[in-house]
């Protein structure tokens, strides 16, 4: 029944014992031509653009119309496109379409195993608090996230904030922050003038402000001694240039900015300036380092105080995205 001599053994093909190439010689040596390859590349790039486009569109819809699509729209869209892309890569670039089907079978088994892995792991993790109501309260799937890393016993994100606030309280950092705010105010003032020279001056001040407000400079490396003085000198030099070109209002503002930087008005500004407000401001900048979510909500809520503060709020609205050039190329 199960074991009988194979009938075909009489006309046995020595070079092909299992009859793989019954349908032609060198089945596995398929040549996929450049036309197909290029077409696939173009399609893949288009799909990449499409998937990015869909994600951006959704954000735009949220921002403009306030319509929040259900979470799965985004997920299903992105993952279906990724699946199509991967099928294209496997079928044409990796030649599965022309290959021995066993390779496809191996890959399918692999995806099946992956599916089982996700399914059953999720089955546990997502139902920890189900079935018995009394468990729903105490059970927190995946833990609390209240990781204790600081001596204060706070969750890690809170501890990060604490560390940051301690740093903010250091005098040079405070100074830098206040200067930045003042500069932004000057930029805003320049914007009202509307002349070419003013725009030029605004660009100069803006760049300086960006540099000083760069999170990396302020927090991680800290402001070098003399950095503010150098900035002031730079601004004065530019002011002198502008004055030579008879653009005096802009030059005046630059001069004023330079005074800010040199610390002339610092004491007064600092008096009305709280750590909290600084924190909120810096948060806006920080969120800006990826370029798209520099929103001014937090800053606006605390905008009723000092002059630099108000100036900053306006400046953020006007220049927010520009101020957020990632990691500025200095």
């Amino acid at each position: 029944m199960a074991h009988h001599a194979p009938a075909a053994s009489d006309h046995f093909d020595e070079t092909d014992p299992h009859g793989h190439s019954k349908h032609g010689q060198h089945e596995s040596h398929v040549i996929v031509g450049p036309f197909i390859l290029r077409t696939i590349l173009v399609v893949l790039l288009l799909f990449t653009a499409l998937t990015v486009g869909i994600a951006q569109l959704e954000i735009a819809i949220q921002n403009w119309f306030g319509i929040y699509l259900p979470w799965w729209v985004n997920v299903v869209g992105a993952m279906s496109i990724a699946t199509i892309k991967s099928i294209l890569v496997m079928a044409y670039f990796m030649q599965l379409k022309y290959d021995n089907p066993i390779n496809t079978v191996a890959m399918l088994f692999c995806f099946f195993a992956l599916g089982l892995f996700l399914l059953f792991t999720g089955l546990d993790l997502f139902t920890r608090d189900k079935i018995y109501d009394y468990k729903a309260g105490p059970v927190v799937a995946g833990g609390t996230g209240a990781g204790v890393v600081s001596a204060g016993g706070k969750p890690i994100v809170e501890a990060s904030k604490d560390r940051f606030l301690v740093k903010l309280a250091e005098p040079d950092v405070r100074e830098a922050m206040i200067t930045v705010n003042a500069l932004r105010h000057e930029v805003h003032e320049l914007g009202k003038l509307g002349t070419d020279a003013a725009r030029q001056a605004a660009a100069v001040i803006s760049a300086r402000a960006d540099y000083l407000s760069d999170l990396k400079t302020i927090i991680v490396k800290q402001i070098e001694p003399g950095e503010l003085a150098r900035s002031a000198k730079h601004l004065r030099d530019r002011a002198a240039e502008l004055r030579a070109g008879a653009a005096s209002p802009a030059a005046d503002l630059l001069e004023k900015a330079a005074q800010h930087v040199a610390g002339v008005n610092l004491a007064e500004a600092a008096a009305s300036y709280s750590i909290d407000a600084t924190f909120a401001t810096l948060a806006s900048f920080a969120h800006g380092d990826h370029g798209q979510h520099a929103h001014s909500g937090e800053a606006a809520s605390t905008s009723d105080r000092s002059r630099p503060r108000a100036g900053l709020t306006d400046a953020l609205e006007v220049f927010g995205p520009a101020a957020a050039k990632p990691q500025g190329g200095h």
Binding site: F120, D124, G142, G143, G145, G147, I156
Partner: peptide, 14 residues
């Protein structure tokens, strides 16, 4: 690590 939001039982699944 549950202290950081992870799950030790996830390790057991893995």
């Amino acid at each position: 690590d549950p202290a950081l939001g992870g799950d030790p039982v996830l390790y057991q699944h893995f």
